[in-house]
Structure formats: C-alpha cells, structure tokens
Simulated scan of single mutants.
Amino acid sequence: MSSSGGDALSDANDGCVGPTSADAGKASACAGCPNQSACSSGAFSSPAAIVAKEEERAVLRTSLSDVSHVILVLSGKGGVGKSTVSTQVAQALSSRGFSVGLLDVDICGPSVPRMAGVVGRTVHQSQRGWEPVYANPNLAVMSISFLLEEGDAAVVWRGPRKNGLIKQFLTETDWGDGGLDYLIVDTPPGTSDEHISIVQYLNDARPMMMSDDGNKSGASGAIVVTTPEEVSMADVRKELNFCKKTSVPVLGIVENMSGLQMRVSDLSFFRERIINGSETVPFDCTDDALSLLREKCPEVLSMIAAADVFPPSGGGPRGMAEKFNVPYLGKLPLDPNLLKACEDGVSFVEKYPSSPAASPLNAIVDKIILALPVEDEDGEQHGLMQE
C-alpha cells in the first residue's frame, strides 16, 4: 500500500500513484504491479468509475458519521491476544458508560462472539441494515459468526469476498440511534487484504485525522498487541511499519502475557512421589499447603506470585515502543481470571476487580480515553477511573 491512501488498490506496489491518476499504469512504481494493465486502460478513471467510487464513499461516510472514534487492534502475530484485548477493552469502555461497537473482521477465525458472551446469537435485517448483537446495553457486536448456519463452519474465501464483507459490515450495520463513542475493530494476524481494505474504507468514510508525523488517516488510531519474546516482536515490528506506511496513528503497544501473576491462595501445590521404584509423578497437596500457610504465615496467601513465561528479548516491547517512537500502554500479565472472563464472555474488570490484571487493564483503558476523549453534553471528559 502506498501513501496515496484510499485511491491505491489493495495489492498495489509501494509508491502507487493511484488508479485515477493521469500517470496510472505509466509511473515507475507501476512496473510489475498486477493492476498495471487495468490502470493504464483507464478502467478506474472513467467517468462511470469515478461516479461509482464517489457513491461508495458517500455511503461509507453516512454509515460511520455517528462514530466518534474507530480503533484498530493489530498485531503481525497470531495468538498474542488481540481478541482478548479487543473484547476486554470494549467491555471496560462500555462499563464506564460509553457507547461501544465491537467489529470482528477476522473472517476465518472469529473469536469475539465467545469472548463477548454472545455465541449462538444471530443478526437481523431491518430497513436500516443489520442489527448487531448486544452483549450489554452499551456494547454492540458484529461478526461473521452471526451469519453462519453452523458455528464450526470453515470460511474458505479469497481476498475480494472478505473485503466485500468488511465493506458490508461498515456500510450496513445499524449501530443505533445515538451512534458510537468507540468502534473497536478486532483484526486477523498479519498485514493482509483485510487490513489494507479497512484502512482504505475508513479513509473514504471519515474525516482524515492529522497524525504526529503530518500524515492523515480515517482511523482514530491502532492498539498494537505483542508478547515479550522476539518471535512475536519480529512480526509486530512489521505491523508498526504497516501503520507508518498507511499513516494509521499508533495509540500504543500493549505487552500481553508479560508474565504469570496469581494470588498465592489461588495456586495449586504438588509434591513429587516415586512409584514403581523410579517413576516420579506429581501428587496434589494443595489443601495441605494452604492449611499450613493459613496456620504459619497467613499474610502470604494474599501475596501475588509471579513468573516469566515468555523470555523477554532485548528491551522488550517497551524498548520497541521507544525505537518506533510510539506510546507504551503497559503490561497485561497472564491472569487465569482474565482467561476465564473471556471464556465466560463477561467483563473482566467488573467480574474480577481485584485480580492481578484488572488494574493494568484499567490503566490501559484510561490511556485510550485520554488519547481519544469523548466529551459529554457539558463539554466535560468522562470515563476515567478515579484514584
């Protein structure tokens, strides 16, 4: 994708001048591009094509006119917790009184419905478009999962069909009369067609916001999720470069699964037992260990036990944020209650407010609200946690 933003095709070369440019198909950047023949033929710059494009932009602008902020949740790596962050940030924002939409554009692997507690629900078509599913009165959810007859059905689609569905989500979803304060978009791994398309659609749909580097984007910003090890960060650096190329401002990096944290009272304890003379097997002695702690040093039970699960590399995600000159939003530890909240489809910060990851997650949400404030009728900013 090039700096030409919404005019560039999804599979265009870097430096694309745009299919409607007078130099389309002729510029040096066009060499080897799969669209060169079509661009040089004028297929995208004909009066009919230009009118069709403007009509598409008008529909997009109308559909998202009542959305204050659109936040993309990105990561070049799969399995780092994008959907966890997307869902729980959306849940936390909605619990603070904001009107929130959660859009799942991971077409082949939609996991948001389970994490939002709306598995098995369906969307309905009205005169105003698709009615999303509501996880709570302030949180509307849209996903391909609601359109499938079977929850385990495989979605085997090529890029154009995926892109068409994403456009339908953006143009045909009725987010309600009052609109949205925040639309959180959960994306698939990588920097593929879905990412390029949604950035282009947002550029067409929304007032272009000026970023710190002077570029403009229709997306309000991106949350980039990573785990601490180099295998993950190597892919996430590509995602940060994608944001730079497409002028999407980065709200910050979330270091997910930064380490395991649990209260000692929630731990399980094991002794090794030798059987058959040589084989060592674990023996659960949790009840005995907790009884001993309650008797001898009960203050230990309320302490947090921590362990690094993924080996941090170099300066870790914080160092990566400094290198790319983007904010570091903070660490989210591995917390069994956070995983349970996602499995049960509930708001983690409401259900487990004293769990180890609750305070870090609330702090991340505070930073998002400060970066993208929503004012009430009196011009006052709200939704921040009180000290």
Rank of each mutant, 00 (worst) to 15 (best):
S2C: 06
S3P: 03
S3F: 04
S4Y: 05
S4D: 09
G18C: 12
P19E: 10
P19C: 13
N35Q: 04
N35E: 04
Q36V: 06
C39E: 00
G42D: 03
G42T: 01
A43G: 02
K53S: 15
A58L: 03
V59K: 15
V59R: 15
T62D: 15
D66N: 13
D66G: 04
I71Q: 08
V73R: 02
V73Q: 03
V73F: 03
S75I: 01
G79V: 08
V80G: 07
V80K: 03
G81I: 06
T84H: 08
T84S: 10
V85H: 00
T87F: 04
T87H: 02
A90L: 07
S99A: 11
G101L: 04
L102V: 05
L103F: 10
D104Q: 06
P110R: 02
P110L: 05
S111A: 08
V112A: 05
R114H: 12
M115Q: 01
V123Y: 04
V123S: 12
G129S: 12
G129Y: 14
P132L: 08
M142R: 03
L147Y: 00
E149K: 15
G151F: 05
D152G: 06
A153T: 09
V155E: 11
W157G: 04
R161Y: 00
R161S: 01
L165T: 14
K167H: 12
L170V: 08
L170A: 10
T171V: 10
E172D: 15
E172K: 14
W175N: 03
D177V: 10
P189W: 14
S192F: 11
H195K: 10
I196W: 01
S197D: 07
Q200G: 05
D204L: 09
D204K: 12
D204H: 07
R206V: 06
M210V: 11
S211R: 13
S211I: 01
D212M: 09
G214V: 02
G214D: 02
S217T: 11
V224T: 02
T227C: 10
T227V: 12
M233I: 05
D235Q: 14
V236F: 15
R237L: 13
E239L: 04
V248T: 09
V250H: 01
L251F: 00
N256Q: 00
S258T: 10
G259C: 15
G259Y: 12
G259W: 09
R263H: 15
D266H: 13
N276V: 00
T280R: 14
P282G: 02
D287N: 14
A289G: 06
L290T: 03
L293A: 06
C297M: 15
V300T: 13
V300G: 05
S302I: 04
A305E: 05
A306E: 14
A306G: 14
A306R: 13
A307M: 11
D308H: 09
G316W: 06
P317F: 05
R318Y: 11
G319C: 06
M320H: 07
N325F: 09
N325A: 15
P333T: 11
L339R: 12
L339K: 12
L339G: 07
E343L: 10
D344F: 10
V346Q: 11
F348Q: 03
V349L: 08
E350L: 09
Y352T: 11
P353D: 07
P353V: 07
S354P: 00
A357F: 01
S359A: 13
S359E: 14
L361D: 00
A363Q: 10
A363D: 08
V365P: 00
I368C: 02
I369M: 02
I369G: 00
L370V: 07
A371L: 02
A371V: 00
P373G: 07
E375K: 12
